[in-house]
Computed example of a mutant assay.
Amino acid sequence: MNTSTFLWFDGRAEEAARHYTAIFPDSEILDRQQDADGRVTTVTFTLGGQRYIAYNGGPQYPFTRAVSLFAECDTQAEVDTLWKSLTDGGREGPGGSLTDRFGVTWQVIPKALAELLSDAEPEAAHRVLNALHAMTKIDIGGLHDARDR
């Protein structure tokens, strides 16, 4: 048995799949399906080796912030690059979240955040979380500074 993330788009499934696979390493479009009129209905693709299915289902089910895709980055440069690519045509949100041009919400989070929180004393962890909540795109240096105050 396999699981995949299924994303319901309003006519932009192939555009989204192309955009995402251009951003993430180890990503590709695996399959496109069309209806009898030649319109793309479904695109199967991978991001970082994980499988997704994008479906052109129409406007009745728009994306909400209740579900988001989580991208964990190793470095500040990765955070910066991914943030720039995903916010192009989208909008920034709080604490490392954003909504891309297709309406999909993402969490762009550095691995350092989990490390800072797991190793921190309660007061230091509280400072890290306060710093995080004040940020849009996460600044790893700023998180370290907050922990060390």
Rank of each mutant, 00 (worst) to 15 (best):
110 P>G: 15
139 D>C: 06
50 Q>K: 11
100 D>L: 07
41 T>E: 06
55 Y>G: 03
120 A>H: 09
50 Q>T: 12
67 V>S: 04
35 D>R: 03
68 S>G: 02
70 F>W: 07
116 L>W: 12
132 L>Y: 04
29 I>E: 14
67 V>L: 04
107 Q>G: 04
105 T>D: 14
130 N>C: 05
21 T>N: 04
78 E>H: 10
77 A>M: 08
106 W>E: 09
106 W>I: 09
40 V>L: 01
99 T>F: 06
34 Q>N: 04
88 D>V: 14
34 Q>Y: 06
69 L>W: 01
128 V>C: 09
81 T>L: 15
59 P>F: 00
97 S>P: 00
126 H>R: 15
107 Q>F: 07
107 Q>P: 01
139 D>H: 04
45 F>L: 13
24 F>I: 10
40 V>I: 13
100 D>W: 07
93 G>C: 06
24 F>L: 08
126 H>S: 15
63 F>E: 10
107 Q>A: 11
125 A>F: 03
25 P>V: 02
127 R>V: 02
136 T>D: 06
58 G>V: 01
68 S>I: 00
128 V>W: 07
78 E>M: 09
74 D>F: 00
52 Y>A: 07
95 G>W: 00
49 G>Y: 09
17 A>H: 07
95 G>A: 15
97 S>N: 12
135 M>W: 02
89 G>A: 13
100 D>V: 10
103 G>M: 03
33 Q>S: 13
72 E>Q: 12
104 V>D: 14
97 S>G: 04
40 V>T: 13
37 D>L: 03
80 D>G: 05
49 G>Q: 11
85 S>P: 01
20 Y>W: 08
135 M>P: 02
67 V>G: 00
31 D>Y: 06
104 V>P: 10
95 G>K: 00
115 E>D: 15
27 S>G: 02
115 E>M: 13
88 D>R: 14
90 G>T: 15
118 S>C: 13
129 L>S: 05
74 D>R: 14
70 F>G: 03
100 D>Q: 10
130 N>T: 08
98 L>F: 08
137 K>S: 13
127 R>P: 04
99 T>V: 15
115 E>N: 14
53 I>R: 14
121 E>D: 12
89 G>D: 11
136 T>A: 11
130 N>K: 08
33 Q>V: 02
123 E>Y: 02
73 C>Q: 14
48 G>V: 04
40 V>K: 00
75 T>C: 03
48 G>W: 03
57 G>R: 03
93 G>K: 08
18 R>V: 04
134 A>Q: 14
74 D>H: 06
18 R>D: 08
112 A>L: 10
30 L>I: 11
44 T>I: 11
45 F>W: 05
84 K>V: 09
104 V>C: 11
17 A>Y: 08
31 D>F: 05
114 A>S: 15
63 F>T: 06
49 G>K: 08
18 R>E: 12
111 K>V: 13
62 P>I: 05
49 G>C: 11
136 T>Q: 14
29 I>K: 03
108 V>N: 09
118 S>V: 13
137 K>R: 15
20 Y>G: 07
70 F>V: 13
138 I>Y: 08
94 P>C: 01
38 G>Y: 05
116 L>R: 12
74 D>N: 09
118 S>A: 13
108 V>I: 15
66 A>I: 01
47 L>W: 05
136 T>M: 05
66 A>R: 01
95 G>R: 02
59 P>D: 03
23 I>M: 04
85 S>A: 15
50 Q>H: 12
109 I>K: 01
137 K>G: 06
78 E>F: 04
59 P>N: 00
55 Y>K: 03
17 A>C: 14
